[in-house]
Computed example of a mutant assay.
Amino acid sequence: MHPDTITEQFSRLVDRAGVPPITLHQVRHTHATMSLRAGVNPKIVSKRLGHATVAFTLDTYTEDVPKLHHDAADMVTNLFFDDPVDET
């Protein structure tokens, strides 16, 4: 199958669905960003995208995911301020 054929078919499906236009490449970026936002391990996201390194994936996508920064701060804060474990 020729790549242009797949692109054209995808564009027709997007039109029929009545959603905002998006390219297949944008679908790839959306998948990566949403996966990271959902908490999928970056190594898994990197492998699914076929990237050579996790570093490339993180460099490319983490700026789009400000929630990751907030979550990281919360995790570290929780190390200091979590409720003590009740041992009774």
Rank of each mutant, 00 (worst) to 15 (best):
A17K: 13
P84E: 12
R16C: 04
A52M: 00
H29M: 09
L13C: 13
E63S: 12
T53P: 00
G18D: 01
D64I: 01
E8R: 10
H2L: 11
R28V: 04
H29F: 08
T62W: 09
F10G: 01
T53C: 00
F81H: 14
I22V: 15
N78L: 10
L24C: 07
D4F: 02
G50I: 12
A38P: 08
T77Q: 05
H29G: 09
D83C: 06
S46L: 05
V14H: 02
R37Q: 08
F80I: 01
V19T: 13
N41P: 10
L49T: 01
A73D: 08
V14R: 05
L36Y: 05
L58F: 01
F80Q: 02
L49M: 02
P42E: 06
T33G: 08
D4Q: 09
A55W: 03
D59K: 14
P66D: 04
A55P: 00
T57E: 00
E87T: 13
T7R: 15
A38W: 09
Q9E: 12
D83W: 06
V65G: 03
D86E: 12
S35N: 06
T60D: 00
A73E: 10
P3Q: 03
P21T: 11
V14Q: 03
A32R: 05
S35L: 13
D82T: 01
H69R: 15
K47C: 01
P42R: 11
E63V: 15
T53Q: 00
L13T: 04
D86A: 10
T33Y: 07
P66R: 06
F56R: 03
M1N: 07
G39I: 06
T62A: 08
L58N: 02
S11H: 07
T33A: 12
A38H: 14
P84K: 04
T62I: 14
T30R: 10
D15R: 11
D71T: 08
I44W: 15
D59R: 15
D86M: 09
D82V: 00
H29W: 07
T53I: 01
V14N: 01
I44Q: 15
H51A: 02
L58Y: 02
S46M: 05
H51D: 00
D4R: 10
E63Y: 10
A73R: 09
T77H: 11
V19Q: 07
L79Q: 04
